[in-house]
C-alpha cells in the first residue's frame, strides 16, 4: 500500500515538472515545484487513507498546495501562478473526466451520473481550495496595509 502511494507521488512529481517545462519555468523554481507537488500528493494520499473521501482529500491537498505556492512565491519574489499551476496539476480530475465520458458513451446512465458528479465536485474542490487561500492572503495583505497606514 505504501509502495503504491510512493510510486504515485513520484509519478505526480514527474508530471508536475513536465508541466513546468511546458510553461518554460527554469532554475530553482523547478525544485520548489517538485517539493510542493510532492507535499501536495503526500497530504492528499494521507487524507485519502484516513478519510476514504476523494473530494475532501483533494480539497485538503488544494488548500495546502495553494498555501505553499503563495508563501514560496513571496520568498522567491515571483508570481504565484508560476508555482501554483504545475503543483496543482496532479489533482486535476482527468481520470474521472474520462470515466464519466466512457459511461456516457456506453449508455450506462447511472454510473455516468455518479462519476460526472464526482468529477464536478473534485473540480469544485480544487477551485474552492485555491480561492479560499488567495482570498485569505488578500485579506491578510490588505489588513496589514491598512494597519501600516493607521500607524503612520
Amino acid at each position: 500500500m505504501m509502495g503504491e502511494y510512493f510510486l504515485k507521488t513520484t509519478m505526480a512529481v514527474i508530471g508536475s515538472l513536465g508541466f513546468a517545462v511546458f510553461f518554460n519555468i527554469k532554475g530553482k523554481k523547478l525544485l520548489a515545484i517538485a517539493l510542493g507537488s510532492a507535499i501536495c500528493m503526500m497530504s492528499y494520499f494521507f487524507a485519502f487513507f484516513h478519510l476514504q473521501d476523494k473530494v475532501f482529500s483533494i480539497l485538503i491537498g488544494a488548500i495546502l498546495v495553494s498555501g505553499i505556492a503563495e508563501i514560496t512565491a513571496r520568498i522567491m519574489k515571483t508570481p504565484v501562478i508560476i508555482l501554483l499551476v504545475p503543483m496543482v496539476i496532479p489533482l486535476v480530475p482527468g481520470g474521472d473526466l474520462y470515466y464519466s465520458m466512457r459511461y456516457f458513451i456506453l449508455g450506462n446512465t447511472q454510473e455516468f451520473g455518479i462519476s460526472f458528479q464526482v468529477m464536478l465536485k473534485e473540480a469544485a474542490a480544487i477551485g474552492f481550495g485555491i480561492i479560499l487561500v488567495s482570498f485569505l492572503v488578500q485579506v491578510i495583505l490588505k489588513s496589514r496595509k491598512y494597519w501600516m497606514e493607521i500607524r503612520k
Binding site: G15, F19, V85, V88, G94, Y99, I130, I131, S134, F135
Partner: peptide, 26 residues
Amino acid sequence: ADSIVIGNVMLLIPGLALTSSLRDII
C-alpha cells in the same frame, strides 16, 4: 486503454487557464 488515454488527456487539460481564471474572478 483507460490509463493510456487518461495520460494523454492530462497533457491537454487547460490547467493554467482554469487556475488563472479562478484567481481573476477572486
